[in-house]
């Protein structure tokens, strides 16, 4: 690793100024992904701006909207009483990710910014359009068991590795972004991008911009919820697929529903068609199966990950079934 320059600040504006003007500068928060990538030579910033001392650590409910500072750690968010009471789906998603040690350090903003775990992305000797545009995609025609089935492109089939983000995608969160010219707000589901022809871009953040907080509107989805993560070992592994499911059921019929998946796309994958189908229907196994089938429209396997075409709908059904059963 290059002996980069290290600067620390307590002021958001200063941090923004330092990174926006310097193409070789980047922010560091928890560092659990960035330091890893720097050790592997995947990225080599020459200047790190330590943002851990910025005042972005609040978790507060204002006008029925939960505000979460970008520097709140994953564990602090998972342990928060408001989150446990009002957004248990987010709590479960957070608890499914990484390990206790990593969650203690990894921040909300950093979790959103984490790069894919694709082995070709991590190995600098292999082709990867995300790491080095134009070199090709190693995973297509290679080892792609962990890879995407939705929204793929000819240049990249990597998946976004976050669990937290799957929960947030289901919860209609919004992302507040600060830039040198002020703040802007975008829907969480629009934050991450599909690979398209620019897989090097994971999300729609511009150079020098910083995630400062999330806002989640309070809902009634705090009872019939489940986060199902299917993985190769029982914990501390990335998802083969994961499903965030939340139902609001009145008199046996579904009045509100949220479904999102992880491990299947370049971004957290919201299942809007399946949601639309389920809304107003009764919470029955047959309807869950139909919803899962609808969710899989346009899914495409790449050989080793063909099993996801079966695992994904099965997981949707299982997550909905468990969510329904929760009292």
């Amino acid at each position: 690793m290059i002996n980069f320059q290290y600067l620390r600040t307590t002021v958001v504006k200063t941090a923004l100024g330092l990174v926006s003007k310097d193409p070789k500068a980047t922010f560091i928060a928890g560092g659990t992904n960035l330091v890893d990538l720097m050790k592997r030579g995947v990225t080599a910033p020459e200047k790190l701006i330590d943002i851990n001392h910025l005042p972005l650590k609040q978790i507060e409910l204002k006008n029925n909207i939960l505000h979460i500072g970008a520097l709140v750690s994953n564990s602090a968010l998972a342990e928060n009483a408001i989150v446990a009471a009002k957004f248990p789906l987010l709590m479960l998603a957070l608890q499914s990710g990484a390990s206790a040690q990593l969650r203690n350090v990894a921040t909300v903003g950093g979790n959103m910014m984490q790069r894919t775990r694709c082995g070709y992305f991590y190995d600098t000797t292999m082709p990867c359009n995300k790491r080095e545009p134009g070199t090709g995609c190693g995973a297509i025609g290679g080892y792609n068991r962990m890879h995407a089935i939705f929204g793929t492109s000819a240049s990249c089939i990597a998946v976004h590795p976050s669990d937290m983000c799957v929960g947030l995608a289901a919860l209609d969160a919004q992302v507040v972004i600060a830039g040198t010219k002020g703040e802007r707000k975008i829907n969480f589901v629009d934050f991450h991008r599909l690979a398209g022809t620019t897989p090097e871009k994971d999300n729609n953040l511009q150079k020098g911009e910083l995630i400062v907080r999330l806002e989640i509107p309070v809902n009634n989805l705090n009872k019939h919820i489940h986060y199902l993560k299917v993985r190769d070992r029982s914990s501390y592994a990335f998802a083969l697929v994961s499903v965030a499911a939340a139902l609001e059921i009145k008199d046996g019929s579904i009045t509100n529903v949220r479904l999102a998946m992880g491990g299947v796309a370049h971004k957290p994958w919201r299942l809007t068609t399946a949601e639309a189908f389920l809304k107003g229907k009764t919470a029955t196994p047959a309807n869950f199966e139909e919803a899962a089938k609808l969710a899989m429209k346009d899914a495409k396997g790449f050989g080793e990950n063909d099993f996801k075409l079966k695992l994904a709908p099965n997981s949707i059904i299982e997550a909905l079934t468990i969510a329904k059963s929760k009292a």
């Binding site: 560091i28 560092g31 659990t32 330091v35 890893d36 790190l48 040690q101 990593l102 203690n104 350090v105």
Partner: peptide
Amino acid sequence: DHGQCGACTVHVDGVRVNSCLSL
């Protein structure tokens, strides 16, 4: 050395972290 095993766990201000990923 990549936050994938926990052998380097220490407490920082009382909180357990992987010291290999902490500058």
